[in-house]
Amino acid sequence: MKIDPNNHVPIFLQIVEQIAASIAAGVFRPGESLPAQRSLAVSLGVNPNTVQKALDELERRGLVVSRRGVGMFVTDRGNESALTQTEEVVAEAFRRGLIAARESNLTGARMMKIFENVLLEMYESRETP
């Protein structure tokens, strides 16, 4: 995980999104614990209160549950919910790109073409690293 301290996205939200993505990717599986608040704070280089805020938010979203004195654990539906939430993050990123396209009066067909090209580019570079 890596946070960007110069990004306009508040740091606790960056942490939320990245932990959610890690849960979606299966780095942390249902029933497993997340790293402790302090070790997350030191490894990410952020204030421990900010980490706590992120963990609270993840709990509010139902991805993890806290067990008093033990730590945070991925819930049974954590992986599934994380996937749904990651989809929303991706959709939001697309939305922003499309707004930029619309402001320049790009047609739907040209947008689709751009999307296809980017997709091809990424998967080709994946196959030949």
């Binding site: 110069n6 740091i11 302090r38 704070a41 280089g45 952020v46 204030n47 421990p48 209160n49 900010t50």
Partner: peptide, 26 residues
């Protein structure tokens, strides 16, 4: 951070590096 994490230390710091402020400050 280690100091802050180990005890509930209160910190006041002045800085021009706003990235550091964003990372460290509540």
């Amino acid at each position: 951070l280690r100091v802050v994490c180990e005890r509930q230390c209160t910190v006041l710091f002045s800085s021009h590096a706003l990235g550091d402020v964003q990372r460290m400050a509540d």
